[in-house]
Design a protein around this nucleic acid. Structure first.
Length: 279
DNA sequence: AAGACAAGCAACCGCAGGTCC
DNA sequence: CGGACCTGCGGTTGCTTGTCT
């Protein structure tokens, strides 16, 4: 089978994404969904291959991505799941709302694997937080574990509004039972010290929200959120994809945050948790 | 202050499997 | 039925940033 060329196509850009490219992609997907990744960049006016767009969206721009440090609970969950599943990062990610397989993979390779080795060498050492945050002080190996459990949930408003729908979530039914139990224990989020069940926090989302619905469906957004978002859309994305305008970042604004705010506002507007609206 | 080194992470690569025609 | 296409996944790379000397 001969594979179609991808990024080696002449003129297609590679490497880090610019805020402008992000905004184009967000705007396009927000408006039209992502029925066909290959066709998307051409239609959106991006000099990227579809694969690159898909990766950027799923790993970084998706509205339910949770950024920031991993909490102790998340790290322990990753370790447990890795014991059970091995390097099946997408399956692990499916059990960690808001986290991507790529992110989990990175954390595993950069923190957890190392720490597990240390723990094996010294079993009395408790699990240490990763302190991904460069501002966080580095904990010494011997320091005791005393970290707030909600550490790392920087933007809870954007997290976990629907169950992750990793297509490769083909965990055996044998493990599903234990997973279900684990989900019950882990599918919660701490917001300002309050324990909030994430499935209660967010409005109910259509099953097809994250599906690869074709363009004919017009959007991948939940239909419940589409009713009156035109003004919000205009406020957050004051341009359209066919008439691309260079966004003004001179005020220090951030396209990612703006995009996330857009989603956040939609959820609050659609009946999101009052606790979250404090953010 | 500057260079070397290490760590973290975004992005790419290539394969596999599913779907469509 | 088989080839072409599309998407998802895991492994890997390489750039950026922080730390050390």
């Amino acid at each position: 089978m001969v594979r179609a060329p991808c990024c080696e196509k002449m003129g297609l850009k590679k490497g880090p994404w610019t805020p402008q490219e992000d905004q184009i992609l967000i705007s396009y997907i927000q408006k039209y969904g992502h029925g066909n990744w290959r066709a998307l960049p051409k239609q959106a006016g991006l000099l990227r291959c579809g694969k690159s767009c898909r990766l950027r969206w799923t790993n970084y721009l998706r509205p339910d991505i949770k950024r920031g440090n991993f909490s102790i609970e998340e790290e322990e969950t990753i370790i447990k799941l890795h014991e059970m599943l091995g390097n099946r990062w997408s399956a692990i990610a499916a059990r960690l709302p808001g986290r991507t397989d790529n992110e989990i993979k990175n954390v595993w390779h950069t923190h957890l694997k190392k720490r597990l080795k240390q723990n094996q060498a010294n079993p009395e050492t408790k699990l240490q937080p990763t302190n991904c945050d460069s501002n966080a002080p580095v904990q010494s190996e011997s320091s005791s574990l005393n970290v707030p459990s909600q550490q790392g949930f920087e933007s809870p408003a954007y997290t976990t509004m629907s169950p992750q729908t990793s297509s490769s979530d083909d965990i055996s039914s044998a493990t599903d039972a234990s997973m279900a139990t684990m989900d019950q224990n882990n599918m919660t989020n701490n917001v300002k010290g309050e324990h909030i069940d994430i499935w209660e926090t967010f409005p109910e989302i259509d099953e097809g929200f994250w599906s690869e619905s074709p363009l004919a469906e017009n959007t991948s957004m939940p239909s419940s959120l589409l009713a009156n978002n035109d003004e919000l859309l205009q406020a957050q994305f004051p341009f359209n994809s066919t008439e691309l305008v260079e966004p003004d970042y001179s005020d220090g604004s951030n396209i990612i945050d703006d995009g996330m705010d857009f989603w956040y506002n939609l959820f609050i507007g659609a009946g999101g948790s009052p606790e979250l609206s404090e953010f």
